[in-house]
Design a binder for these strands. Structure first.
Length: 322
DNA sequence: ATTTAGACCTGTCAGC
DNA sequence: TGCTGACAGGTCTAAA
């Protein structure tokens, strides 16, 4: 679901909410969500640990734990965090009543007081407190019970998300194959030039490749290419120095802007809870096909590049000629 | 060696 | 109203 700006935003919220807390117990409702090591070990090793920090690496959200451990969470398409205030009850009745439904929906959550409309704190939302019907399906896969009574939920309807536990010494192994942070000083025009020089696939695919730049996803790839006026199907190794310069600038601008907007380029929350939101307001091409280009008025087009939906302006981003 | 299609999962929405 | 297919912010891996 989230790309780098959304993850960054979530991590900042985790930092201000759960850092300093202590994990009492972790409940796992969908075992495959625990990607490393295994669910039983994960539960045993995290119980009683202090949460000492919250960081981001690429699209991973990291929680540092006492004892030189850290949790790495990849939300993939639909993973999210919720922070429940103390007093909520977890109802696992469905487990026996309807195993198939339980597997899909997970447990339901009973609010502290007997009102059916109550408050959830949504960690990855700009608005921290979101009214939610307690009867709404949470799709909770993993629940971190904190000693102070709060519960940090990892929700994930599609079950693609993964949560891993590593020791700090294993950090290199945990992130092997992850490229540079695009907002770090290491990410230079020279670096981008070098990385693209040997890539024959399209520039769109190169931007999505996490082993080059960590954190760019489908939205920001399309937006960065529009910024630079580069057609998504251009071979990565065919870009001119001027184009690479523009693209580098586009990547930085688009991601920085995303973070400034609270990373709310788009998200499931708003759909899920029926909030209107201004999700698309600062998108230039992503999901804008059929709309006029804000720069030249030409209709934005949508094509498929490596099975990913790709949006661009055919006039501003030409494939051939100069 | 690459490229691509399929897996992994569930919900929503458009069209018939 | 109901069914079907397309599509969704991601990434890994088997097959071509």
């Amino acid at each position: 679901m989230p790309e780098m700006p959304e993850v960054e935003y979530t991590v900042r919220q985790l930092r201000s909410s759960v850092v300093g807390a202590t994990i009492d117990e972790v409940m796992v409702f969908w075992e495959r969500t625990i990607g490393h090591p295994d669910a039983a070990t994960f539960r045993a090793e995290t119980a009683g640990r202090h949460i000492t920090g919250a960081r981001r690496r690429g699209k991973f959200s990291l929680l540092d734990l006492s004892g030189d451990l850290f949790i790495a969470i990849h939300r993939r398409m639909t993973g999210n965090f919720f922070l429940l205030t103390p007093g909520w009850h977890i109802d696992t009745q469905l487990r026996e009543e309807d195993p198939a439904a339980w597997s899909t929906k997970g447990p339901s959550f009973i609010p502290p007081h007997q009102s059916d409309e109550t408050i959830l704190q949504a960690v990855s939302l700009q608005v921290l407190v979101e009214p939610v019907l307690a009867t709404k399906t949470a799709y909770c896969r993993v629940c971190f019970n904190l000693v102070d009574g709060r519960r940090l939920l990892f929700t994930d309807p599609r079950k693609f998300g993964r949560i891993e536990l590593w020791s700090r010494q294993q950090e290199a192994e945990a992130f092997k194959g992850l490229g540079l942070e695009p907002l770090s000083e290491n990410f230079t025009v020279a670096f981008l030039t070098e990385m693209l020089a040997t890539r024959k696939p399209s520039i769109k695919q190169a931007l999505l490749a996490q082993d080059i730049i960590a954190g760019i996803g489908n939205i920001y790839a399309d937006e960065a290419l529009f910024y630079a006026g580069i057609h998504p199907l251009r071979r990565a190794d065919s870009l001119t120095p001027a184009e690479i310069h523009s693209l580098h600038e586009g990547i930085v601008v688009v991601l920085t802007t995303g973070i400034e907007h609270g990373g709310t380029s788009f998200n499931d929350y708003r759909d899920m809870w029926g909030e209107a939101g201004d999700n698309y307001s600062h998108m230039h091409v992503y999901q804008q096909h059929g709309q006029p280009c804000g720069r030249c008025g030409t209709h934005i087009e949508r094509i498929l590049v490596a099975q990913r939906s790709t949006h661009f302006c055919p006039a501003c981003q030409r494939l051939t000629g100069e």
